[in-house]
Simulated scan of single mutants.
Amino acid sequence: MIRALIKNLMALLVLTVAVPANAQGAGATQVRQSGRTYTQWLYNGVVDLLWPRLAPKLQAHFATPEGLHAFIAQIKTQLGRETSVVRERTLPWLDGEVYHRTATFSRFPGPVWVQWTIAPDGVVQGLLVKPEPAPAPSRHLDYQTRTPLRLPFAGEWFVFWGGRSVMKNYHAAAPDQRFAYDFLVAREGGTHSGDPSSNQSYFCFGEPILAPGDGTVVAVEGSIADNIPAQMNYRPSLGNHVIIDHGNGEHSFLAHLQRGSVQVKLDDTVRSGNRLGRCGNSGRSSEPHLHYHLQTTPRFRAGEGLPAQFLDYQADGKTVARGEPTRGQMVAP
């Protein structure tokens, strides 16, 4: 099925594509044209033109031009031909732009997303093809977080995924992660400098991760090896992690920590701002980042996601007394 078709590609590109939700960038017209061109090359199997435009990380995912050919063949088999374009958008992404297209296809019952992340030089940094998801239903949309939460890090971080719509936050399709966040560090339009296959090249790798609020450690894992960037370990999805029971029906999940860095143990009492470990790239993660979410139970995939409203932080240079960070923002305690 289509989910099987896109699983591996999405796994890589979930952390390659970040789309702030606001206005179109200055290069919108050019990006729209490039996106339309790349989409037609994809549909028509023009791999000899498309392959040289892919960033090395994306080429590594497909391995060879033949791998890209095989992917295109699967799209044709399972989606069929595009029958209509529902909408198009161009949105800023770090120092580049994203072309986002929602379309219908002859062999698929619902809308499908085709999305390209395009650097200023025209290189394709990310490609996403997936059925348009719906946010998970939630009875907590008006919920006010009980725990006084702080951002779980020091310094300025980038909100890679965050918000209540699936467009802003792919986690929103999952009931337990309905209001989850992915955070990383971005500098000068990028998330790393140097060898992209080395975790040490990523700005957030090894950065301290802090307790977002007071509570008791109810689950901890710290022995899982960090992934090579662009490769993922699906089991366990959380990788190295800490789960905190705040004692009021709220439980914080902090995931993908660096192997050997976790400093707390089961049943430890932690205070807001205590160091838990360091940012890593373990579990279901394609590059170093911090995953955070709040839910009703301490069991992964067995609870309801809760809105996590942080207190007294900076978002794009403005003070927020209480709020929920959204994709594309730069945030700091």
Rank of each mutant, 00 (worst) to 15 (best):
E82W: 07
S282W: 02
L50S: 03
S282A: 04
L266Y: 10
R278G: 00
G215D: 04
C279F: 00
M10K: 14
R146H: 11
A332W: 01
P133D: 03
F310Q: 06
F310N: 00
H140M: 05
T145G: 03
G25T: 08
R87F: 10
R275C: 09
Q78C: 05
T319Q: 13
T39H: 09
E324Q: 13
L257E: 06
A55D: 11
D195H: 09
F105G: 06
R235A: 15
I228M: 14
V220R: 06
D95H: 13
F160M: 13
D316Y: 07
G155A: 08
K318N: 00
D95P: 10
A219R: 13
A211L: 15
L151N: 02
G273L: 08
E287D: 13
M10V: 15
Q74H: 02
D245P: 02
L79W: 06
G239L: 07
Q231G: 11
K168Q: 13
N22S: 15
Q314S: 01
Q231T: 14
G323R: 05
Q263D: 10
G27D: 13
R278S: 06
F300V: 14
G162P: 08
F62Q: 10
G45L: 03
K57N: 13
F153T: 00
R81D: 02
N44P: 01
R107E: 11
V112M: 09
G110I: 10
L266D: 08
M167D: 15
G189N: 10
A60I: 12
P131I: 00
L311Y: 12
I118Y: 02
R284H: 11
G213H: 07
V166M: 09
Q78H: 02
E66R: 12
T326L: 05
Q74N: 08
F153A: 03
N274P: 10
Y170D: 09
R322E: 12
P135H: 08
S106D: 06
L54S: 07
H241G: 06
S193Y: 11
F183I: 02
V98A: 04
Q263P: 09
A73F: 04
D142N: 14
G273P: 12
R327M: 15
E188A: 09
T145A: 00
H251G: 02
V264W: 00
G162R: 05
V46K: 03
G162M: 06
A186Y: 09
S106A: 03
A321I: 14
S84N: 07
Y170A: 03
S197L: 14
R150E: 08
V85C: 11
G323L: 04
